[in-house]
Design a protein around this nucleic acid. Structure first.
Lengths: 212, 212
DNA sequence: GTCTATAATCGGATAGAC
DNA sequence: GTCTATCCGATTATAGAC
């Protein structure tokens, strides 16, 4: 019938509401952390009654876990950009660039991660000890190979990755501080691109041998 | 009398309890942020009844403000280490070293700051826009002078300071993540000193002209 | 000054009407 | 599927005994 053809399919309506709740939850969890967030505030930002939220996500923790899992998947996607080149300077530039773009496009995801670490990582602790550690170890091997080949100065790869993570995620996690120092306005696209270019340049200069 | 001489003076007893509450509050606020923290948990960690806490600090917010103000003072103390030398390489090394030591010795202070920024800096916003911005501007002037004198490569000073802040504070804010990647144990003193030396070396190499 | 008891409110979750 | 009404434990804060 007409109603069958014109109305939004049931499953799509559900997906739309779930997505609204999900996005609202992301913004609240990013701002207040798990404990400081309330289902009432999430429901308010999703513009639905609180009870309705509990219909789609039975508990606050289930909603938090769904949000967190999504953040980890996004992180892994960006991580893959490290592999796309064999030359250290290209690999590092591509990875840092991807992480900077991620900080710009999805600062909320980065903040959810930061809040989770700050409270002791009760939910993503396993991910850190397994998937993340595996990723890190395998990339450390690549970096050590570069060092042996004289393509990179001698350094402990792990602390170099920490430096990359810190610097890039700072543009997401401390966006508010940067805005306060920028006349109350977030970095413009031009400012951000300048920052990104400088971060890449300083990091590369810091680890590539002289005269490269 | 004997009791006058042997017992802890009244003011000292008060100071001791205030300090216990203060330290407990620091650890709780650092872990859960303002909203996620409860006065009950703070009282528990201070090992006093909850009502007693409210005697010394009338409200949760008053306690939070006291804790936050202390963090800002500590930050400013470390900031002064940037001035102690005129040579860029020495000034930068001294500042980064001081910030790294701060991250190691007072990670809680750094985490309180991070949590405050993550929720939009409602309490320290004024500090950021006035004192911190003034500090940053004056140091940018110094850095620009070095660049003009050929002592530093061309760069936007602000993003360089962001890089220093990000990298050093990462060792406080993401200590939990680093521990998870280090077999569940925090960085040893030796590991931390190696990281600190590498951070300084990479940053200096990244901004000093070739052959310095 | 200290602490027990409690008021007042908030927050997570559910029952049950529609 | 949706939402109003509500339960009940948690949380901030205070009153008032000691």
């Amino acid at each position: 019938m007409a109603s069958e053809l014109t109305r939004t399919p049931r499953s799509t309506a559900r997906e739309g509401r779930e997505k609204a709740i999900f996005e609202a939850a992301r913004s609240v969890f990013a701002e207040f952390g798990y404990k400081g967030s309330t289902t009432a505030e999430i429901a308010k930002r999703a513009e639905i009654p609180k009870a309705n939220l509990h219909y789609y996500f039975p508990t606050k923790e289930a909603l938090y876990r769904a949000v967190t899992e999504d953040v980890l998947n996004t992180w892994l996607e960006a991580a893959s950009s490290f592999d796309e080149s064999v030359d250290p300077s290209e690999a590092i530039a591509a990875y840092v660039s991807a992480k900077m773009d991620m900080a710009r496009q999805d600062p909320i995801g980065s903040r959810i991660w930061a809040n989770e670490i700050l409270r002791g990582a009760p939910v993503i602790g396993d991910f850190l000890e397994t998937t993340l550690l595996d990723w890190l170890k395998s990339r450390e091997t690549i970096v050590r190979r570069w060092i042996k080949a004289g393509k990179l100065v001698a350094l402990e790869p792990r602390y170099f990755f920490y430096m990359i993570w810190a610097t890039t995620q700072h543009y997401a996690d401390f966006e508010g501080q940067m805005a306060a120092l920028n006349g109350g306005k977030p970095l413009s696209d031009a400012q951000f691109e300048a920052a990104k270019a400088q971060v890449i340049a300083t990091l590369l200069r810091g680890v590539l041998p002289s005269g490269t």
